[in-house]
Design a protein around this nucleic acid. Structure first.
Lengths: 201, 201, 201, 201
DNA sequence: GGATAATCGAGACGGTACGTCGCGTCTTCAT
DNA sequence: ATGAAGACGCGACGTACCGTCTCGATTATCC
């Protein structure tokens, strides 16, 4: 979303047209909706945005980046009702529901595709992962941390791994595309996580 | 008599050459190793396999399918030491280690890419998922089931979700490509899963 | 057997199926009519004739030859009313009319195409030329010869060239495909040829 | 003002590269010389011209058209010594010699092949015929016309047919590829044409 | 009459070229 | 200097036929 648009100097010549940037993203988004990531070709984007191909390349380095940028733009901040007086596990449930709602859509699958397809080292891929996954991980980590501090959760849980277990389950089902991805599933996840698998003596 | 017994093999014409099929897969595999899925072009495959392009298309409908088939062929059954006298959680650890070992490689990432990129409805995609993920899920489910029967694990855990939580965490890190994916991680996962997150009163 | 004098072709094995040969030619002919020489592909011919491709190659060495053979088969001997009591020039007219009638058709153009496209040295090309052009030339030469002998025509005309002038004009118009190719044209040709171009003193 | 003025040249975008066009034609020409029309494949042309295949298709619609264009480019105007004080028949001889010289070469046969093979209705085929045959016909017609006006030739000859008789004979021998195609032949043609076939009383 | 052998329909094979599509770059003219 | 337009070199796509080969199943003639 917030790209690094450096504007330190008064530029000479015609300034870049931010309207073109928007038109490109809108075009890419509509193509995404209509035909998935494969339909977002540079030529289709440029044509639909009434923009020259070099203009697209002026903003993003390649096809991949445009798709990612289009998907990034679709991200709503997810609100996070943030009633922090609730229990940590309720907050987790709330967060996972948001995630599930966000990803149980065609767009969600596209995001997963891009996550899997992107060169893991690239700048935009980093931003993409950060936006869609790491941010969620950070939220989850914060929730767990608070739970530990409030004594609701065990002190010696591995927070990183715990978050991955919850988010990972959602992404796995998203990738597989067959098992249900809904509120019930969230309940099961949190239920399992809360009590653990081991029998009590 | 019933003359419609089942005659899938009309068996006319020159039989398909399994040698060509193998050569194609070998070529695709070597290209995969050298340059990733993007390097597996039909022309490169055909040329390296000393095979005509139409022959490749006779066996698989498109580029994607060839890559999947090549990856499918690389799957070793992983042995699964199957000392079933051990505890369910030890078995889980063992299984996850196998999975981690299998996927914490370039090939592993390629598999994840294909999982994410494939049309979820296609035949080969189904086989692909079945081979690489569903099979693991079934193994995990079986382990948990045995644990429950032996009284090691709680009776009311949601087995499906539990397996997804373990495998999902691994796949998530694989997709993200940054957090470590190793034996320590497996320990953390199983540790979290065993005791649960909730504090004991 | 009593009539076994010498059987140089002691045929063993299954004899060639003349029915297949006919079916192939019929198929090639119908394809020719429907789509021109370009439509006569080996696969289409074999399929339409219910014949294996190797069977086609057993009779003709390549695609070209099949087309030629199909066209050869369409040649009717043209009857040549052969009322030889008429004047040489009338006979010429008659012959040219036959030629025009024969070639002023799609098939006629196909024949011209093959004449132009064929490797001039090949066996079948020779037969093809012989059949469609040289035979006409021989007829024309015979007519002129008779005319000379009967005193109707000048003695010192170059017979070969004269025939080529008449037939060539027809083929030229056939190739060009625009100037009319009909009885009037034949009249003009013979008229020009009869009197010559030079003015009489 | 009338805004529908006629704007065939919108003149936007990068202009077509005439250098590429030339390189393509040069490549096609060299391939023609080396291997005949069959060797002029789009891929060979593009590769030899250091040009992308789509660029070739931007200029010509298919393989056929490229071959024709290459042949068209080879046509030298033939000078036509234009000593118009000579007799019409001498001029005819001169012209036919030029034609013979032009076509009694491998390139000449290629031209004939293309003439015979081309779709007679297509734009390029029209140009091709115009260039190689109709232009010659027009020249011949002009010569005959002058001859008539000067009283050298009969007034009532059919000029069109007469020209076709001369040119047609040349093309016929070219197609047949066996009878000689040389100055002697030209002499015979003009000789026959001059005096006519009919005996003088 | 049983072996032998050439031919049959069928169709896969290694190839070559087709004509198309998309990539990312370059070049022009107009703002 | 940007912007749109669009041609460019490149390379892969998936298809169509080429002419050859390999099957199992027929049909003859020869032993």
């Amino acid at each position: 979303m917030s790209d690094v648009v450096k504007k330190p100097r008064a530029k000479r010549g015609r300034p870049r047209d931010l309207g073109a940037r928007d038109a490109i993203l809108r075009a890419a988004r509509s193509l995404l909706d209509e035909g998935g990531p494969g339909a977002v070709t540079m030529e289709a984007v440029a044509s639909r945005a009434n923009v020259g191909k070099p203009t697209v390349y002026r903003w993003w380095p390649d096809r991949h980046a445009v798709v990612m940028a289009a998907l990034l733009g679709e991200a709503q901040p997810a609100a996070m009702a943030s009633a922090e007086q609730r229990s940590a596990l309720d907050e987790l449930k709330e967060q996972l529901l948001q995630v599930v709602k966000r990803f149980a859509t065609p767009t969600g699958r596209h995001i997963a595709s891009m996550l899997a397809a992107a060169d893991p080292g690239s700048e935009l891929a980093r931003a993409f992962r950060g936006h869609f996954v790491l941010a969620r991980r950070d939220e989850g980590r914060a929730i767990l941390q608070r739970g530990i501090e409030r004594g609701e959760l065990r002190e010696d849980i591995d927070v990183e791994a715990a978050v991955d277990q919850l988010l990972g389950a959602v992404f796995l089902r998203l990738l597989l595309g067959l098992a249900p991805l809904d509120a019930t599933f969230v309940e099961q996840l949190v239920g399992n996580a809360r009590l653990g698998l081991a029998a009590r003596r």
